[in-house]
Design a protein around this nucleic acid. Structure first.
Length: 580
RNA sequence: GCGGUUGUAGUCUAGUCUGGUUAGGACUCGGGCCUUCCAAGCCCGCGACCCGGGUUCAAAUCCCGGCAACCGCACCA
């Protein structure tokens, strides 16, 4: 539970290192060491199990460098930008808009830097701390900028989220899913934010790994086919209202939360539950998980409802590790406007709608001779007019003046009104997007923190068997040639069967167990003298250090059952002799 | 970005104030001996003054700058 102890072991045993240490390091970057990389991959693959296999979403991969247009459309170029100013005397840095709003009460959101600078000098706004003069306003954008191409004319940015890489090929995706909602697309990968001053180690990184799902749905159908199966599952929620009124979080069933509108839709509720199930599955205890709703003031520009999954930590309090948002149609709409591409989906009505409609048409035999060459454009213009207005004007004035490049006067005899029935099969809409966005690095931190166990003089990571980086250790009880040879052979066999197996002869058996416990190896195979005669070895369970004696030929099968969590060690011990 | 505190092997630390032999110890790690089940013991070995500049005959030690970590403030679409 202690941050310091856990991070110390994480560093010592090769889970997490700060990057570029030999060059003093750079804040906000970390290396995943050998065990960290294994752990991270296992967690990401578990995530794929949940979102790709079980939910039926598909994964894609887009570039991490993207052209400026993408982030103009997404709002990151404008909204991810903070206007800053600094006191010339005391060097304090401020948000320029905040300081103006405080001093004058003006709403200056969205104004250009030059305008803000003018306001500061005209209104004689000074440093609130020391009264000193303030510098001109500059922009601090949290995106890393780069130049694309040899001539360096095209501005590019490192993506601040993986999501945009899913929105931009939306037309292709829609075709891949055969033009039908709902569908989900996921992406796991790196994202970048040039934080002003990253602290808190792995909690706020400049380069981090996200696992995001973008689920495209019909706005009228924000539910999930399996919602009924999770209705009575309990969620610990901290709604915005409770935060504002200083009340405590509530525990409520998924069904009630959606029904009462605490969470804005059944689908969003389902994804809150799913995120929690995932976290519990990889080994984060349920009682350190809660869902906190964004306050209206902190909600991102694109969302209508957003819940953070938070984990309790001893050092940082409750930290956000997952954000689950209803992004509505913000992104697709905006990309559609900027790119001039149609990013809508055709939704077919269950029953076609029959609409009665009045139309006005030109009588060709009248219009033709009357207007000759100009008739064509008049006919075309009539199609776009509201027939009611034409009819009304005709009735009142006996003629209708059509304003085009010049005025054409149309009489009642030139026109024909008709009421027709039109069958509308459906409509084109922008889908809404439900987005669970996982911060993998923070999840790993939370997992390390909450898996760490200390018992007497023993420490271990209580990783689930299928998450543990090293799966099994093979150890000779003592370093006698024959035992070492047999242990090596068993290790090779296990590796050939796909297990991540380690072997260790250093120190005494107790020290070896301690070493593998410290990195959370769930099972150990120990070869003793008896093994040479009866071809049996002991299999040790990390959490309770209990052992059973099992024949070497059964080992692969037993370990497979254990590591895939088809069987618990306790169940296995019914079939085998228990060792003291 | 601002202010404060701190930087000695993988880890913890002595030495820094008061400049002066080969920077000392413990644990860890590697090799060996021993050892029949949970960090035992013995022998051997690897391994450090954050980086750069200055002052000085001489800098881990004093001064300046940088970097990093921690704490507070600010920031965190």
């Amino acid at each position: 539970m202690s941050h310091e102890e856990v991070m110390k072991i994480a560093r010592k045993r090769g889970f997490l290192w700060s990057s570029f240490e030999i060059y003093s390091g750079v804040a906000g970057f970390v290396d995943y060491g050998p065990l960290g990389a294994l752990l991270k991959n296992k967690i990401m693959n578990k995530w794929r199990e949940y979102y790709i296999i079980k939910e039926g979403f598909y994964e894609m991969e887009s570039p991490t460098v993207m052209p400026e247009e993408v982030f103009k459309a997404s709002g990151h170029v404008d909204h991810f930008n903070d206007p800053m100013t600094q006191c010339k005397e005391c060097k304090e840095v401020y948000r320029a808009d905040h300081i103006i709003e405080e001093a004058t009460g003006m709403d200056v959101e969205g104004l250009e830097n030059q305008k803000l600078t003018e306001i500061i000098s005209n209104r004689k706004i000074r440093c609130p701390r020391c009264g000193g003069h303030l510098t001109h306003v500059w922009s601090y954008n949290l995106m890393f900028q780069t130049l694309i191409g040899a001539k360096g004319k095209k501005i590019g940015y490192l993506r601040p989220e993986t999501a945009q890489g899913i929105f931009t090929p939306f037309k292709r995706l829609l075709r891949f899913f055969r033009n039908k909602l709902p569908f989900g697309v996921v992406q796991l990968g790196k994202a970048y934010r040039n934080e002003i001053s990253p602290r808190q180690g792995v909690i706020r990184l400049r380069e981090f790994t996200q696992a995001e799902a973008e689920i495209f749905v019909n706005p009228k159908e924000k539910t999930h086919p399996r919602f009924h199966t999770i209705k009575s599952e309990k969620l610990k929620l901290y709604p915005a209202e409770n935060q504002e009124k200083g009340k405590k979080p509530i525990t409520i069933t998924a069904g009630k939360a959606a029904e009462k509108g605490i969470i804005s839709s059944e689908l969003l509720t389902y994804h809150l539950w799913l995120a929690k199930k995932f976290l519990v599955d990889i080994g984060i205890p349920e009682d350190v998980i809660r869902f906190r709703q964004h306050l209206p003031t902190e909600m991102a520009h694109y969302a209508i409802d957003c819940w953070d999954v938070e984990i309790k930590t001893n050092r940082y309090g409750w930290i956000e590790i997952i954000g689950i948002a209803d992004r509505t149609d913000y992104d697709l709409k905006s990309h559609s406007e900027h790119s001039k591409e149609d990013l809508k989906v055709f939704i077919e009505y269950k029953k076609p709608k029959i609409v009665k409609k009045e139309t006005v048409k030109a009588k060709m035999d009248k219009i033709g001779p009357k207007f000759k060459k100009e008739a064509a454009k008049i006919i075309k213009a009539l199609e776009d007019l509201d027939p009611k207005i034409v009819k009304k004007e005709l009735e009142e004035k006996g003629q209708f003046k059509l304003e085009l490049d010049k005025t054409y006067t149309l009489l009642e005899e030139d026109l024909e009104f008709e009421e027709i029935e039109e069958t509308i099969k459906g409509e084109k809409i922008f889908p809404h997007v439900i987005e669970p966005s996982f911060g993998i690095d923070r999840i790993i931190y939370s997992l390390l923190l909450h898996s760490y166990k200390k018992e007497d003089d023993r420490t271990y990571f209580n990783f689930p068997a299928d998450i543990a980086p090293v799966e099994v250790a093979v150890l000779p009880l003592v370093n006698k040639e024959k035992l070492v040879q047999l242990a090596l052979k068993i290790k090779e066999d296990l590796r050939n069967n796909g297990f991540i197996a380690e072997f260790d002869t250093s120190g005494t058996i107790g020290r070896r167990y301690a070493r593998i416990d410290e990195i959370g190896v769930p099972f150990a195979v120990t070869v003793d003298h008896q093994s040479l005669k009866d071809h049996k070895v002991t299999l040790r369970n990390r959490n309770d250090t209990k052992q059973i004696r099992i024949s070497i030929k059964d080992l692969t099968r037993a370990l497979e059952d254990l590591l895939k969590r088809r069987m618990k060690f306790q169940d296995l011990s019914r079939f085998y002799e228990i060792q003291d």
